[in-house]
Design a protein around this nucleic acid. Sequence first.
DNA 1: TCGTCAAGTTGAACGCGTTCAAAAAATGCG
DNA 2: CGCATTTTTTGAACGCGTTCAACTTGACGA
Lengths: 249, 249
Amino acid sequence: MTHSERGRSERGASHAPTGYTVKDVTEPSPGPTPGKGEQTRRLIVATAIRLFAENGYEKTTMRAIASAAGLSVGNAYYYFSSKEALVQEFYLELQREHSAAVEPILATGGAFGRQLLGVLESGMQVWGPHHQFAGKFIGLAAVPGSPVSPFSPESEESRKISLDIFQRLVDGTTTKMDPALRAELPELLWLLQLGVVVYWVHDESPEQTKTHKIIQRGVPYLEHLVGLSRLKVFRPVTVQGLALLRMLR
Amino acid sequence: MTHSERGRSERGASHAPTGYTVKDVTEPSPGPTPGKGEQTRRLIVATAIRLFAENGYEKTTMRAIASAAGLSVGNAYYYFSSKEALVQEFYLELQREHSAAVEPILATGGAFGRQLLGVLESGMQVWGPHHQFAGKFIGLAAVPGSPVSPFSPESEESRKISLDIFQRLVDGTTTKMDPALRAELPELLWLLQLGVVVYWVHDESPEQTKTHKIIQRGVPYLEHLVGLSRLKVFRPVTVQGLALLRMLR
DNA sequence: TCGTCAAGTTGAACGCGTTCAAAAAATGCG
DNA sequence: CGCATTTTTTGAACGCGTTCAACTTGACGA
């Protein structure tokens, strides 16, 4: 792990394909001129995503991706430094899907609990078909220094998308709470989501029913706690807890 | 992942080496008669542990283990179904070391916070030299269905050792708390430890100073919360939180 | 148009974890 | 002991992710 590029998962050795920002693969026409390299790149991403979704992580070998896209393995590695980088693309795709699904919920506004429940449930809906894939993914993401780690620089875009959802949720909620808590709540929810994901991934109950039930009980509980933060009795506990949270950074 | 053995990490296909319970590699004489197979098995474990500690996870290839032990790769696979199974042995070794280090702390008894701090700190001391290895390990352990997953049946022994430490800690502590909380506290601490480990593994500050600081602030905070559980105002929050915790199982 | 250089592409090769048919060694029985 | 059976050991082979020297294609100024 000794590459120092920022924010993108490709490498391109010393010579990189045309730089650009990640955008929808199916966008109509604008954006950077789709040169030959760009075309190949998109083909690889699209093929990889399709195969990951169809056949899962392990069956989707680099050779399978390359041959399905009609090119050589080496060529795929010219655009992506590793299989993990392609996994990251798949992850981003699902995250954009989640982002879109969550849009109406956040736009409507409303109580904290209702919104959080919506965000978590729609996340499970988007990821549901890929539960097994997620199990392998989490194994990659848990390794420090991996590009797909939620703490890696390569995951900055992912992190931003995710944090943004919670930021908007908190900004838009009418639920009253300690202002100090409100300031930290987006990040706290992001961490909570990490925990939920870990639980969900290990949840082998049919349709991940256990996870559903837990967030349905847990979210109102959390909403209750958030409300309590305004009470004088809970003030010291809240303040100290937040101080601890800030230490994690 | 289609083997259904209980509690051990080896396989042995249809024919398994002499069954026995995992014991100290360096014990004097008793235990199951050390037949040829048993000797080979121990040699492999000892060699693997040594190489993991000396050269880390990736450099310790199955070929390296086999050749260092003076036998063939296939032979290693006769006793251990995978490299992960050998990693598990290394993990168990460190856990026994931790268990021993923690003994005097638990024997002394004392306040909850003091004991918990001792347990966590000594864990970091034992694992400190293997911080990088732990990073790879957590990647394996995070994958559902992996034998080294903390939730796997193969990890039952590990889990028991760990839970036992927290059970004794809670049983031995003089700190007053809600009895309902006391009943669930060992498992809660076990989960907390999982979180600490994840943070520690990703903590790249020198000597993992950040993790040290956080547990030094976090443990007293937790002790405070535990104490608060006896107050009437905190009762509903405690009770509901515990109900939620029980749902996780 | 041609030549030059960068961009893009190839496929063989490497080391890895893992498998397995076959050989060797140990064991048990008449 | 002689022989059949089981346990243990071997090493070649497989498919995987990844690397890289060599080749082809495209872009562009002279």
